[in-house]
Amino acid sequence: MTYIVNGEAVESAAVTLSELLTALEYEGEWLATAVNGELVHREERSACRLSDGDRIEVLSPMQGG
């Protein structure tokens, strides 16, 4: 399936959000995720089933003023 991850098209066989993060080698606890504009909590990622064309945002802390 094709997912839009942080604005880039990604082909993946992953079915859930947690599988997709693993497939894309995201690791560490400092990630926040959203699918189609809705927050997905860390503990909900393994139950979050994705659909073709879903827009996924993966954010992490960075410097800010």
């Binding site: 942080n6 604005g7 894309l24 080698e25 995201y26 690791e27 560490g28 606890e29 400092w30 990630l31 926040a32 945002e57 993966v58 954010l59 992490s60 802390p61 960075m62 410097q63 800010g64 003023g65």
Partner: peptide, 18 residues
């Protein structure tokens, strides 16, 4: 103050900063 941005390095860049 801190911010959030798209993570491009597998979660490691933001983690190190935080």
């Amino acid at each position: 103050t801190v911010s959030l941005r798209r993570e491009t390095a597998g979660g490691r860049t933001g983690g190190a900063f935080f």
